[in-house]
């Protein structure tokens, strides 16, 4: 492995880390604002112009808060759990091409940290590991509500892994590759080539499962707001809780990148317009996460399981079978 490649990769890792940590913060600002406007409120207004510096104020608060590790918790596990959430969220980003390749000062930059040939499998796997953050955090917390939340989280994540995997199987069969760059090449021909037209069911299923994977509102029983506490994060404070938060928002951003890359043509032909298109699609999917939070109620855990095992999974299997039949003949 030559040094230039190593340096380039390290720079890319740092850039992705910095940009998405910052975006996670700005994401909370957008979430508050969008939710506020949808509920006829103003949202943060006082810190900085239009409350823009609220993010910084929150950051300062999170960083300077006392780091409480309660008695009775399993301290080692308790401390490592938020790191798992944040780390897996960012690790998943390694296989996502955020922009088409471009030339900077005569040097061709591939805005993907590692174009491994099992990209999607890797992303799904890493997001699956992300389950251990809430699970271990909740189990180590010595708090029964955290424990309940951890159990719910495990149930939701494991169930929806099935839907995510199965729904993606059909597009993967069509493209014949697991690399997101190959997915992009497959759809580079324009809107008519987008996989959403040939795989609408897979698209909807994956989108629904994305809400469960990120634990966003219709499936927000991971940290059940109705218990007035923050689910598995109840005992956490300061930056440890902040890591859970960053992980959740980074996950939202990455999923918002992955959905258009797989189903909606990604960055298209790789032109500047295509790159803007990808960012626009990403922005829409991120906005949709906030939008549903304002509009939809949460479902009950049993309804969530019902939806997963009795509706989405059979649909995904049927979708795969039909895709296979169509491809065979």
């Amino acid at each position: 492995m030559d040094t230039a490649y190593l340096i380039e990769t390290i720079i890319k890792v740092v850039v992705v880390l910095l940009i998405f940590s910052a975006l996670a913060g700005i994401g909370t600002y957008f979430e508050r604002k969008v939710l506020a406007f949808m509920q006829r409120r103003l949202g943060p207004m006082y810190v900085g112009p239009f409350g823009l510096l609220q993010v910084a104020a929150d950051g300062v608060k999170l960083f300077t808060k006392e780091d409480i590790v309660p008695t009775n918790v399993v301290a080692k596990v308790f401390k490592i759990a938020p790191v798992i959430t944040a780390a897996t969220a960012f690790m998943a980003a390694a296989a996502i091409p955020f922009l088409p390749q471009f030339t900077l000062f005569g040097y061709t930059v591939h805005p993907i940290v590692a174009d491994i040939n099992i990209g999607i499998l890797y992303i799904l796997g890493i997001m699956g590991i992300g389950l251990y953050g809430p699970l271990l955090g909740g189990m180590a917390s010595a708090n029964k509500f955290s424990l309940l939340s951890a159990a719910r989280t495990a149930a939701v994540f494991i169930s929806y892994e099935v839907v995510t995997g199965l729904s993606l199987l059909a597009p993967i069969m069509m493209v014949g590759s697991l690399s997101l760059i190959d997915f992009n090449e497959y759809q580079a021909g324009g809107i008519g080539d987008w996989i959403i037209w040939s795989q609408p069911v897979a698209f909807v299923l994956f989108w629904i499962a994305a809400f469960a994977e990120t634990g966003r509102t219709p499936f927000h029983l991971i940290a059940n707001d109705h218990e007035i506490i923050d689910g598995f994060g109840t005992e956490y404070s300061g930056m440890r809780w902040g890591l859970f938060f960053i992980g959740e928002y980074a996950n939202m951003f990455f999923i918002s990148f992955v959905i258009p890359l797989i189903f909606l043509g990604g960055y298209g032909d790789g032109s500047f317009l295509g790159a803007l298109g990808l960012l626009g699609k990403m922005a829409f999917f991120f906005f949709f996460f906030l939008w549903t939070r304002a509009a939809w109620p949460d479902v009950r855990p049993d309804q969530l399981m019902w939806l997963c095992w009795k509706v989405l999974m059979p649909l995904a299997v049927i979708n795969i079978v039909i895709t296979g039949l169509v491809m065979m003949f």
Binding site: F37, Q39, R40, R41, L42, W291, A294
Partner: peptide, 11 residues
């Protein structure tokens, strides 16, 4: 909710 956001009738 989108309609309320577009109307921007803040209370």
């Amino acid at each position: 909710v989108l309609r309320e956001m577009i109307k921007f009738d803040i209370h």
